[in-house]
Amino acid sequence: MDMSQAAAIVLSVVNSIALLVIISVGLAVIFGMMGLINLATGEFLMLGAYMTVTFYRLGMGFWVAAILGSLSVGLFGIIIERCLIRFLYGRLAAMMLATWGLSLIMIQVVTLIFGTSTQSLPTPLGSFKIGGYSFSDYSVVVDVAALAMLGLVYVVFTKTRYGTMARAATLDATMASVIGIDVRRVNMLTFGFGAALSGLGGALLSALAGVVPTFGQQYVGNAFMTVISGGAAVLTGTASASVLLGGVQGLVSNASTAFFGSISLLLVAIVLLRFMPNGISGKWGRRF
């Protein structure tokens, strides 16, 4: 194996990790901070992708379209929290059914509006070469974006006033409200933030894959695997699970085929959860 082949494998493994981060970080925020299982998470990705395609068609550049797409899913998340989610806190099964129903409704509504045909926008930027291998610039953008999303989560939850309040509300909602934190408002913002992160994930994916109403379904399994394997710690858990699962998937795909890569991801997640039922971060004392 020469240097350029090694570089190709490293880049592709890093990209597999980054793809897991961008699909799961929104889910991780909602799950980790609110203890809420959002089964519509795949449809938040899908909505982000559709909004990005729409803004792009309206003549905006891809980057602007992606950010607007992400923000509009965040806004949508806030509306959903106000109209649906807030009535169901503490009722886990009801919450799962409601978000699952939401996901079905979203798929059907998007089908009605956009039809079943594949929508897409071209992958931005060009390619670069290392030795005999060429790579797309955009895959590096996705890597950087994944890091930036983790960085954003870190900054928002540790460096801002809202973040401190959100963590307080997570640890003990009653106590938090006693000391004057408006837990309902915090929950609304957290749900919206998680939705916006999922929306950004979908926006980034829209330039890679074809966008169809069932777009989210292909990612939701891996997103749940990553978040559950990561455990309750939003940032460190998701990051370490992405590195582990994405790393194994990337290496196995490169050494054999994409088929075995997909299997290896699931296998590692199952074995990991057998021995660490609370995920990688389950035994870590800190929540973040």
Binding site: A8, L11, S12, N254
Partner: peptide, 22 residues
């Protein structure tokens, strides 16, 4: 010959394999 499951949309490794096989 590489078979790709219908739900796979990450083609990084396949692109690498193709580049290696020239």
């Amino acid at each position: 010959t590489e078979f790709v499951p219908l739900n796979v949309s990450d083609f990084n490794s396949i692109i690498n394999h193709i580049q290696a096989a020239k």
